[in-house]
Each structure stands twice: as structure tokens, then as C-alpha cells.
Nucleic acid binder design. Sequence first.
RNA 1: GCGGCAGGUUGCUUUAUCGCCUCGAUGAAAGUCGGGGAGGAAAGUCCGGGCAACGCAGGGCACCGUGCUUCUUAACGAGAAGAACUUCGAAAGGGGUUAUGAGCGUAACAGAAAACAACCACCCCGCUGCAGUUUGUCUGCAGCAGGGAACGGGUGAAAAGGCGGGGUAAAAGCCCACCGGUGGUUGUGGUGACACAAUCAGCCGUACGUAUCACGGGUUGCAAAGCCAAAUAUAUCCCGAUUAUGCACCUGAAAUUGCAUAGCGAAGUUGCCCGCUUCGCAACUGGAUUACAUCCGGAUGUCGGGAGGGGUAGGCUGCAAGGACCAAAACAGCAAUGUUUUGGCAAGAUAAAUGAUAAAGGCCUCUUUGAAAAAGGGGUACAGAACCCGGCUUAUAAACCUGCCAUUUUU
RNA 2: UGUCCCGUGGUGUAAUUGGCAACACGUCUGAUUUUGGUUCAGAAGAGUCCAAGUUCGAGCCUUGGCGGGACAA
Length: 138
Amino acid sequence: MEKFPENRSEKRRFILSKDERLCSKKQIEKLFTEGDTFLVYPLKIVYTEIESKGLGPAKVVFAVSTKIFKKAVFRNLVKRRMREAYRLNKQLLQAENNPAPLGIVFIYIGKKILDFHSIEKAMKRSLALLRKNSIPNP
RNA sequence: GCGGCAGGUUGCUUUAUCGCCUCGAUGAAAGUCGGGGAGGAAAGUCCGGGCAACGCAGGGCACCGUGCUUCUUAACGAGAAGAACUUCGAAAGGGGUUAUGAGCGUAACAGAAAACAACCACCCCGCUGCAGUUUGUCUGCAGCAGGGAACGGGUGAAAAGGCGGGGUAAAAGCCCACCGGUGGUUGUGGUGACACAAUCAGCCGUACGUAUCACGGGUUGCAAAGCCAAAUAUAUCCCGAUUAUGCACCUGAAAUUGCAUAGCGAAGUUGCCCGCUUCGCAACUGGAUUACAUCCGGAUGUCGGGAGGGGUAGGCUGCAAGGACCAAAACAGCAAUGUUUUGGCAAGAUAAAUGAUAAAGGCCUCUUUGAAAAAGGGGUACAGAACCCGGCUUAUAAACCUGCCAUUUUU
RNA sequence: UGUCCCGUGGUGUAAUUGGCAACACGUCUGAUUUUGGUUCAGAAGAGUCCAAGUUCGAGCCUUGGCGGGACAA
């Protein structure tokens, strides 16, 4: 039942404030035109390096298409689950000698609403892949 | 008890761990502490307002919307209480329609005909032919011409008031009785739509559209609108100023003023416009030349404002707590609602917060069992603020309250 | 968020003020051809996005849903 026994002392570890989210329309457009993509079902990830003075290792966007979920309630639910999954696992992305921050877009592609645990599993896998890809890339 | 009808209300709770947005206090900062954080529909965007920008003397036409009555309301196409007709239901009740009717248009197919009229059949008068014989101004049949009437004619969604009698050559509201419907007048009741009664009239169709009448509507919407920052290129058009050249006038030291010019046509370039390129013509000007012609060369702008085009996609105000606000009680009213008193008011994001995970409980339902208890399974909806209000419409697991109708049992 | 438009065979379009849902391409079958294409002949394939209403009768008129699209500092 004790999910985070060793991290309890470091409180800042699970914070995800507005500074770590990508809000500029310009930067998002740049990300979609220049970024690399890969797929970890049910997520599609688009990422690239960005210029930022932020604190965290990356700036993130969570996206769910209107074409997949018509109702706003279900879109919000999926986005909240994705955000929680990133918030609890973003330390996986924190490499030692990797100062250049990333801009990442997580796009939900699945046709059904999955529960939190399967989304978290996909998130962990995609974060590991992101770390592997970003280190050799200059 | 069971089934139904109408109206209204609520629409899961608690704990643990990790978080998100915002306001206040404190602090140099990191942070810490405290307060607050979705709905009855936040939805659809179908109506009506507030608010903002632009426009606007006033009026009319056009266009759009609404259309029984009275009332409510800031306003409405909304609501309340009613009226007439119609329809569904056994009932309680539910749904629909209703401004005007003078004129004009349409009513497929079928049918004689879709409302003017004509046709078939019917009846009358006249003429011609044939037949009959009680030999007559006769009867019957056929044809031609003229008239009568709209009673009959398999249809159709709809057929010219219904039924009976009189009447006639044959018929017909042509006339009469009863009934239905329309319109006028009078009386009674009602604020009114209208209802009831009496009397008179003429014999009377339907649906939709057009038309007419009354009332309302300026247009666009918070991505409105204003400010700051950042960024870009003024193609083209219009207006004003200025400049260059020439001429005229004035001055003769310099300045000033007025007029003209700063184009036109053809072809090509993506169908068109602009622009661009090429060619031709006209005109200004410098030089060569005695002069015309000719030859060589140059210029056909600049600035400001508007339209338009281009760039930016960041922040602040609008915008977050007092207004057509909500709740309760009293009074007025059948009711919608109004008045007074008392109490209460803090969601404010902007790639868009209001949560995620785990557990426990509540409620409903199914199975096991004779029943209860217990155990196990399933369900716990619709749905997420985006400038703000009033309605309407649509979606909604389950529960509760009030009134009424029908039925069964008991007293 | 606001404003506006559209929905007809597989695809693209018609349907005159309400009256038998039409055309082209495509598909299928047959003929021609050694075979395929071309060409010719024939056939199938919709009930007009859904549900109510008005009407004797709705693709068309009215209302409410559903789906798709466009525009805007």
C-alpha cells in the first residue's frame, strides 16, 4: 500500500506547476513542425529541444482530440489521468548531465477510456524511451 | 395494496496518500499559514435583455418576426388564468388549432365537373324521315336545330346544407315543417375572448398561398471595445500638402502668387482587375543644330491622413462580491407575480484549474433460502463554467413530497 | 467562445412556387476480342441524416435532435 516510501522526505518531487507546462502557441506550432515522434499505445509523443528558463527537465502538453471523445467530460478525465501519470513519474526523465530541456506533447490516441494504471504503464515506457533518445541527440 | 395522471424537490457520503487554480496574511527569497473552488441542465444556441463599438433630425417604403382574450414581467416568440373548435384516453388529464375574409391564384392522378362553364342522361317546343292506325293539331322511334334545370352520372382527401312533404313538362330552398351552419339587431351575464335567449335575413363549401391589418425590430458581437509591449512591406485607390520643369504676373536684394505637365493605346504575362515587360503615339525637358525636321539623353516624384493590404498571437482592463440577486415569513391575488420585513451573498481558468489513486460505508436491484438474517454478483445517471442575467428545448441511474383518477380488499 | 452554412444510390450533382426520386462516373452480367482495354446491350443498387408535426399527400414547409464544415483579435 505504501506507494512512495522513499520519496516522502523530498516533497518537491511530485509538483507539476504551470511553469512546467507549455503554454505558448508559437512554441507548440514549432514543436509540431520540427519535432520527432514515436508511439507507445495509447500515447503518441512529439518532442524536441526548446529554449526555456524553467525549472523542470521538460515543458509538457497533454492533448486529447475532439474527434475521439466528443464529450468534454471524457476529454478532461483522460487529460487528468495523463497529467497524474506524468507528475508521479517525471523523475525518470531527470538525467544527470542533460541540461537542455525538452518540449513534449502527449497525444491520446486510444479509442476507449483506459484506467489510470494502463496509462501510467505507457507513460513510464515512453519516458524511458525519451531519456534514451535525448542523450545521444545533441 | 396495485396501476396511472399532474406539479414540485434532491441528485451519494467518509477516510488516507499525492497534487492543481485563485485570494489574503507573512517573508529579502524559497516557502509557510488561512479562506474559496462546476450545474440543474454549466449543454443546444432557439428567443428576450444588460453591456460595448459603429451608425442615427424626423417620417415612409421594403425586409424579418409575432398573431383568440385578460393579466404578469426589465423584456420576450416566455409564463399564469381562461374562451371556442378539434383530437387521444375508461377517468384524472394530455396534445393541436384560432388577427381579417373584400379581391386574386393553386388543388397532381382519377372524375362529366375542383366551382366560370361545358358533356352524357332527363324534359319541353319546332322541323324532317320511318312505322303504327281509334285518320287526329294522334302515338312511338331516329336525326337536326333551339331552350329548361343543375336533381342523377362507378371517381376523389374534398362534390355545391340534411331529411320529409308540396310543387313542375322535367326539376331545383322554388316553397313549407324540423334540424345544422352563417350574418345582422336587441337583451342578460362576463374586464374580455365568448356564452345564453329572442328576432330578422338570405339559402350558405374546404385547404393552402398571396393580400390586408395591428404590434415589435438600427447593425455587429466580450475573438465587442480600450491601453501597453513586440513585430512588419506599404502593391493599389482617394483626399490634402509639397517638390521639379515651363509660361504668365510681380519684384529687380531676396521672397511670393496663378495656370499647365508628372499621360494614352495595343500585345504578352493564369479567366478578370491591379502590377510588370515590350512596342507605338502624344507631351515636358537638357544637349547637338541658323530654324523646322531629325539624332542622342533624362524625368514621370516625395510626405501626411483614410480605404485596402501586411505583421504580431504576449500582457492588462472589460472580469469575478450589491444585483431586473437568493431564501424565509406576512400581506394582496384563483395563479404567474408583486409589496414589506428579516437573513444571506467571495468559482474565475485562458493549450484552459476545480483532481488522481486506494479503501470503507450508504441506497437500489438480482441469485441462493419456506421466510428473515447472512453471503455473493451487478448498478450508483446525464454531464464540465469561459462577459453576465430571464426563459424555452434536449439528456438524466435512483429516491422523496403534494394533489387527483381508476380498480381490489376490509370496516 | 461567438456567428453562419450544409446533409439525396459507392462517388459527384439534379428534382420549376408540395404531386411516379432523375443524370453521369463507378459496380455486376452478357456480346465483340486469343486475352485485357475500348465499344455495344442489359441489370442491380436510395426511400432523401434521425424523430415528431402541418397536409389528402413531404426530398421540399415547421419544430427538436444528430453529424460534417467554414469564418473571426
